[in-house]
Each structure stands twice: as C-alpha cells, then as structure tokens.
C-alpha cells in the first residue's frame, strides 16, 4: 500500500458565533491515496463542505481550524499565507457547487483560466491563453476558442461548470476537491458532467474528494465513501462496504431514502426528525435522538469509529448488535 496523498487527522473547525463558539467539525480523520476517489456523503449542515474548505483553509475569518492536514507531505495548517496561495490551485484545486456565483462575472472565462496559470507558473499571457484553450477543449466545450472570450453569464449552466472544471485543472493539481459539482445543474447535464469528471480523474490520475448528498453519484464514481453526520464521520469504507453493508443507522437511512425504479408502489422511508442544531448537540451519539435503535448507552459517550473490517469503520455504540441486512423500502401494507 502506497503512502496516502491526503492525510487528515483530528480536523476541527470552531466558528465564533454571536452566542459563543460553535464547533462545526469534531475531529475528522481520513486519508486518500493518489488516483482514488473518496465520496463524502451527508445532508446539508453535516460539515462535508466545511471539511473540504478546511483542507484548503478556505474558512471564514471567524473560524479556527485545528488538527493536521497533510497533502503530498505539505502541512497545510502550518503554511503562511503566501505559501498557502502557492499550493492552492496548483497542488490542490477546488470545483465549486455553483459556477454561476463562483466565477467572477466581470472577467472572461479565458482570462480567469489564464490568470491562474500565470499566477502559478509565471507564464506569458499568450502561453496562458493557449493553455486555457487546450483546457476548454479537454473539458469538451464546443467552439472553445470563441468561449474563451465569453463572460460567465453568456454560457449555459453546463458549460459554466465545464469552464470551472477547466479552471480547476489548469495547473495540473494532484488533488481535486469537488464540492457538489453537479447539484446546481439540470439532471441530463448532471450526468454528462459527472461522466466527464470521472473520465478526467482517471486520465489525469488525480486524487479526488467528491462531496455529494446523492448516493447515486457516489455509487457511480467513488472508490471509498465517508458518511458525515453533525460534524463527524460516522461511517467510512470502500464503496461496496458502505453502500452494500452499511453499519450505521444513519447511513442505512440515507441509503433507504434513495429513489429507484424498484420502489414503484412502495412508500419511501424517510429519516425522522431533522439534523441537530450544531450549537446544541446532544451528548453522546449525535444521531441518537433520531435513531430507532437508540438505547440509554448511546447518549452516554460519543462512540468511537470501530472497525468492521480492515477498511470499514462505523461510529455506532450498538455495532454488531443490530441486524446486518439493510431493510429497503417496506411494502405498502394498506
């Protein structure tokens, strides 16, 4: 087994709020090898986006990050601002969820790609523009030369996201972070962009962190899956392990809420309740108040991430006590 390219241990983020500090991430650990795809699954507010931003230290000024983030041997949290700017975009690049707001509306696509190349490689404008053109062709933007001159608002959502991907790839990053890159797109475009991303990831061999709340997307592209809940990873393992033999009741609930054609005539099973207020987390397991299997022990202490297999870990106090099968949607009895 090669040395992991990304190693995150005990990553914590605390945000100073109006009513005192709120802990958004409670010690997140994971690692990722070169060329692999890790999907981070979870609902809004589970801390998955914050985890990704913390990897690049892209957090609001009111937030403090602690723990350790090693990317290709670089201790990201120890870098000074200047050194940080040097690795952002070149060693690790990010694709944002909403290209309409993540691209500067007042500069052309070509300029925005080219300036990144210039910032990192000191290339001339002419060379940087040539690279931008190659990149737009790489992400299959039709009539790329003309699109270089286009402003973001002149492109469709799908083309904008392709431009965003081209931008992220512009300095050949070893690690790509994609924060729900297909969520803002139409369903048909989503699949195109997803397939493109998978193809590029394989071709360029980037380690990829892919944030999504869509189990189907995870299934499609992930080598490994991590499920987050209330600022903690509650389950992680290979895609087959997590999606096939989920151990955590929350992960099972998440999988049960997937809609597929097999479910015609059945009633969907939602997870009861709503995600907890991060400023007022329950003691012990954060999921316990919504969990059908919760017992007294669950609220006593936060369970450890316990190993189910060499790679499969689950943070549940009743691990092993619950039936292993995943009950899918129940037949409608009435």
């Amino acid at each position: 087994m090669s040395k992991p390219l990304v190693q995150v241990s005990d990553l914590r983020v605390v945000v100073r709020g109006a009513d005192g500090p709120v802990t958004i991430l409670h010690g997140v650990d994971f690692s990722l090898e070169a060329g692999k795809v890790l999907c981070v699954l979870g609902e809004s507010g589970s801390g998955k986006s914050m985890t990704m931003r913390a990897l690049m230290r892209l957090v609001p000024r009111s937030a403090t990050i602690s723990g350790r983030v090693l990317i290709d041997g670089v201790d990201v949290l120890a870098l000074r601002e200047r050194e940080l700017a040097r690795i952002r975009g070149s060693l690790v690049a990010m694709i944002f969820q909403e290209p309409a707001t993540a691209l500067d509306p007042t500069f052309t696509i070509g300029h925005q790609i080219a300036e990144t190349v210039r910032a990192h490689e000191g290339a001339s404008w002419a060379d940087a523009r040539r690279r931008a053109l190659d990149l737009l062709e790489l992400v299959q933007v039709p009539s790329a030369a003309r699109r270089l001159q286009a402003y973001p608002h002149e492109l469709s959502g799908g083309l904008r996201q392709r431009a965003m991907i081209a931008l992220a790839l512009s300095c050949r990053p070893k690690v790509l972070i994609a924060d729900e890159p297909t969520t803002a797109l139409d369903a048909t475009v989503q699949i195109q962009v997803l397939l493109l991303l998978r193809e590029l990831q394989r071709e360029l061999g980037m380690a990829t962190l892919f944030v999504t709340h869509d189990v189907g997307v995870a299934c499609e592209i992930a080598d490994e899956v991590a499920v987050m809940y209330a600022g903690r990873i509650v389950e992680r393992g290979s895609t087959e392990e997590v999606l096939g033999r989920a151990g955590h009741p929350y992960a099972r609930g998440l999988l049960r809420s997937v809609v597929t054609s097999d479910l015609v005539g059945t009633r969907l099973v939602p997870i009861d309740g709503s995600p907890p207020e991060l400023s007022a987390l329950p003691p012990g397991c954060s999921f316990a108040p919504r969990c059908n299997h919760a017992i007294e022990r669950c609220s006593a202490a936060v369970p450890e991430l316990a190993a189910l297999s060499a790679s499969h870990r689950v943070r549940c106090a009743r691990l092993g006590e619950l039936e292993p099968a995943i009950p899918h949607a129940q037949e409608v009895s009435t």
């Binding site: 892209l58 700017a85 040097r86 909403e98 707001t101 500067d104 509306p105 500069f107 990144t116 910032a119």
Partner: peptide
C-alpha cells in the same frame, strides 16, 4: 462576501490580484 472571491483564493491568486477583481466588480 461573493463566492467568487473565495474561488479566487482557492485558485491561489496573490492578494493584490484579488483586490483587482474586487475593484472591477
């Protein structure tokens, strides 16, 4: 507060270049 400013930081642009983007907007 716009997301593109964060995206400019994510691209690793020097702070002075980001000020230019802010100014133009």
């Amino acid at each position: 507060q716009q997301e593109y400013v964060q995206a400019l930081e994510a691209k690793g642009l020097p702070a002075a270049w980001i000020v230019l983007h802010v100014a133009k907007n």
